[in-house]
């Protein structure tokens, strides 16, 4: 199976409540909270596309789009 490649992190800033669950459980520490306590993808180049952030987000506010989904 070909490894999925990241296209983008789609973050809904209106829905994000800044709980930090995605930031903490990201295995590559890609995500951070900004000054307004909203999540941002600080190091997207390190993203493994494991989607743990997307599965764990209590606010449905983050989505990982990979090259495999757009095909």
């Amino acid at each position: 199976m070909v490894e999925p490649k990241l296209k983008e992190h789609v973050i809904n800033r209106n829905w994000c409540k800044g709980c930090g669950i995605c930031v903490y459980f990201c295995p590559k520490k890609v995500l951070e909270l900004d000054a307004g306590d909203k999540v941002v993808a600080k190091r997207p180049e390190d993203c493994l596309c494991c989607k743990l952030c997307e599965f764990r987000c209590p606010d449905l506010a983050i989505e990982i789009i990979t090259d495999q989904e757009s095909e």
Binding site: N14, K17, I21, R56, C57, P58, D59, L60
Partner: peptide, 24 residues
Amino acid sequence: IRERFFPHIWCPGCGHGMVLNGLL
């Protein structure tokens, strides 16, 4: 989901949102 009702009322970090996520 009914996007018009989001963001939901649950507190930051509440497990109920995670259950909703998993159920969907």
